[in-house]
Computed example of a mutant assay.
Amino acid sequence: YCFYNVNLEGELDLNDFVNLNELYIFGVGQDKNKLQKLTSLMVNKCTKLTKITINYTTLGYLSLGSKPKLQSVSFTSNRQIYFCDHVLKDQIGKLNSLILSKDNSDLKLEAKKVNEECLEYQLSLAKSNMDESNQLWLESLVDSQKEVLHNNSAYARKQLERCKKILTEVLSAEEIQDILGKMIEINELETQSNKLNKLTLKD
């Protein structure tokens, strides 16, 4: 279904359209009066979705839910999109906690890979709503966090705080913390996996 010549405003709940396959939402330009004025979009029950394209909107909150058939996602020139699938995030968090408590190197490596893919997807979505300058600041945030985790240098910590401050113009504090937290989990999984491998070699 395509929303183009229709003016949208407020919350758009499409959860009753359980057979929805493709969803396109377009504004007609980046000017404020040309954007689709959405505040939230609910499609978490539309499990048959294969393609989602959302361009030129003021969309704030997006509830995707599980999309096993999703093949294509495109978000371009939206003001800011905040994913509010808290249940899914909580489940992933609990799974990570469980994996971190287990002494299995292969399991930790697989979990690390999944977390890295999630982080890459999250960063890609964030960048799709940023100009080039803020994209560079986001990359700097990631690089600074890596440096803090690996070497804990004072310069990296200072740069990290600077990046966070600048990015609050385009990302919420929770979104920034979610990115940094995911990087901490990835680093912890890698550290634990390496320790287990060393113990295995000694045995």
Rank of each mutant, 00 (worst) to 15 (best):
D13R: 11
L100T: 06
N104T: 15
S124W: 15
C46H: 02
N78T: 05
E185G: 10
I92W: 02
Q145F: 10
K51Y: 05
L149G: 15
K94V: 06
L49K: 01
I92E: 02
V43R: 00
L107K: 07
K108C: 02
E9A: 11
V6C: 14
D103A: 11
G10P: 07
L149D: 10
E22K: 01
F83S: 13
K89E: 09
V87W: 05
L100R: 04
S101M: 07
F3K: 02
S153R: 11
K198S: 10
K45T: 04
L64Q: 02
R157W: 10
I81D: 00
M42D: 11
S193N: 14
E117I: 14
Q36D: 03
K195Y: 06
Q30R: 12
I92M: 04
Y61G: 04
L119I: 01
S193E: 08
N44E: 08
L119C: 00
L199W: 11
E11K: 04
R157T: 13
L70N: 00
D106E: 14
L189M: 02
L98T: 03
I179E: 03
V114H: 10
D131A: 09
L23S: 01
K34N: 09
L8T: 03
D178I: 08
N44P: 06
L138A: 11
K113Y: 10
S193A: 11
V148K: 05
D31G: 10
K165D: 14
L107M: 09
T50L: 07
A126T: 07
L70R: 00
K202W: 15
H86K: 06
E147M: 07
E132H: 09
L95M: 10
C84T: 12
T47P: 05
L138M: 15
I184E: 15
E139C: 09
N21Y: 00
N44Q: 12
T57S: 01
D143T: 08
H150V: 08
G93L: 06
L23Y: 01
I184V: 11
E132L: 10
A156L: 15
L196H: 15
C163S: 11
K198W: 07
A156N: 13
Q71W: 04
Q159A: 09
G27H: 03
I179F: 14
K102Q: 07
E190S: 14
V6T: 09
A156D: 08
M42Q: 12
E174V: 15
L171G: 03
K34I: 11
L62M: 01
L141D: 01
Q71V: 05
H150W: 05
D106H: 09
L136G: 12
L171K: 05
Y56E: 15
T47Q: 08
C163M: 08
Y4K: 04
Y61K: 08
N129P: 11
F17V: 03
K89M: 07
V148E: 09
A154W: 14
C2Q: 06
N21I: 00
I92Y: 03
I81F: 00
E147S: 15
V43F: 00
F3Q: 01
Y1K: 07
T191Q: 06
E9K: 15
T200Y: 07
K195N: 06
V6D: 10
L199A: 12
S97L: 08
L41H: 02
L141N: 01
N197S: 12
Y1L: 10
L196T: 13
Y24S: 02
S77L: 13
S66V: 09
S72F: 04
Y1V: 14
L123F: 03
N19I: 00
G60P: 00
K37E: 12
H86T: 12
D106T: 07
Q177G: 08
I25W: 00
